[in-house]
């Protein structure tokens, strides 16, 4: 089979030029510039004195970075896992032909529409011992009640995780609900005739059918986790101590406040790695399904000929 020739429409090219320039300029050149800087000893201002992998060695000895890496795994694991579980449960709830579905959907999606700074501030107030939940319960008479997760180094990260789940669960629900609605109604009928209870149908039949929706929601969540920044700034500024440091916070702090561009860029490059791995995995699956589709297409294409011979 001949390769399809790509024709370029000149008007389209003119229209796309600003976008192409932005994409190349901002993404490709800046990423390369960041990687280059990570091999220099840049302090306050970028310079080009190359020092090999020294910044990386230093990075992996910095407790602040090690805590960041631990935190992002913790934050990623819990927020993605609970987002998926709650998102699916909410989607199942919305799928029960409830009244006021539009209103509920708006409510669940609303946190996603808000800036993470707002989300972070709201949750910080709720968890603040003097303003939030603790003082409310104490005012009711329970004067010994304590609830101030953000002031404790051991629990602060879980406070951030709760806020992250609250923020992301709505959009997961929306994606998974679209997936649920895409399941053929006759499959539901067949399951009812077979006497399969509703919860088993959701768990064993529709859930596996929604792989595409789950992968989409998962990738979106992963991207959100890797770049989590504003939530931390609004809630804890990385504290108490360095207990809620995150890689993105680390990078920004080293580029601006801590005047260590080289180390910040090394950290930024480390953040790029998992994203590249994610994209590679996604590309692999896309390629595999394309290849499978092509294989089936070829098999189908040969069928009519074979049948034609038999029929004639």
């Amino acid at each position: 089979m001949a390769r399809r020739r790509i024709k370029i429409n000149p008007m389209a090219l003119i229209g796309l030029t600003p976008m192409i320039a932005t994409a190349v300029g901002v993404f490709v050149i800046c990423i390369i510039y960041s990687i280059v800087l990570s091999f220099t000893n840049s302090r306050l201002l970028p310079n080009f004195e190359f020092i090999g992998f020294a910044q990386y060695e230093r990075l992996w000895e910095t407790p602040r970075w090690l805590i960041s890496v631990r935190n992002i795994w913790l934050f990623g694991f819990f927020s993605i896992a609970f987002n998926m579980i709650f998102g699916y449960l909410l989607a199942v709830f919305m799928d029960q032909r409830i009244k006021q579905e539009d209103a509920f959907r708006t409510i669940f999606l609303y946190p996603f529409a808000m800036s993470l700074v707002v989300t972070g501030l709201v949750w910080q107030w709720i968890m603040d011992p003097n303003l939030g939940f603790q003082s409310a319960v104490r005012n009711m008479g329970f004067t010994d009640f304590r609830f101030s997760p953000l002031t404790n180094e051991a629990t602060a990260i879980y406070g951030v995780i709760v806020a992250g789940i609250w923020n992301g669960v709505g959009v997961t629900m929306a994606i998974l609900l679209a997936g649920l609605r895409g399941v053929d109604e006759e499959v539901w009928k067949a399951a009812r005739v077979d006497g399969i209870p509703t919860w088993k149908t959701y768990l064993f039949i529709t859930l596996p059918m929604m792989r595409g929706a789950f992968i989409t929601a998962f990738v979106l969540q992963c991207v959100g986790v890797v770049r989590v920044y504003d939530l931390i700034i609004a809630m804890t500024q990385g504290g108490p101590g360095i207990s809620t440091q995150m890689p993105a916070v680390f990078v920004i702090q080293h580029i601006s406040g801590r005047s260590n561009v080289g180390l910040g860029m090394a950290a930024a490059t480390m953040m790029l790695l998992p994203i590249i791995v994610l994209i590679a995995i996604q590309q692999y699956f896309a390629w595999r399904s394309r290849r499978r589709a092509a294989g089936i297409g070829a098999a189908v294409a040969t069928l009519p000929q074979a049948q034609g011979v038999k029929a004639s």
Binding site: D184, E186, V187, K189, A190, A191, R192, V193, P208, M209
Partner: peptide
Amino acid sequence: PKDRGIGMVFQSYALYPQ
């Protein structure tokens, strides 16, 4: 439906794809 003593076949086959 399961207690009615029926089996049903649908237009879209409605098999459990996974």
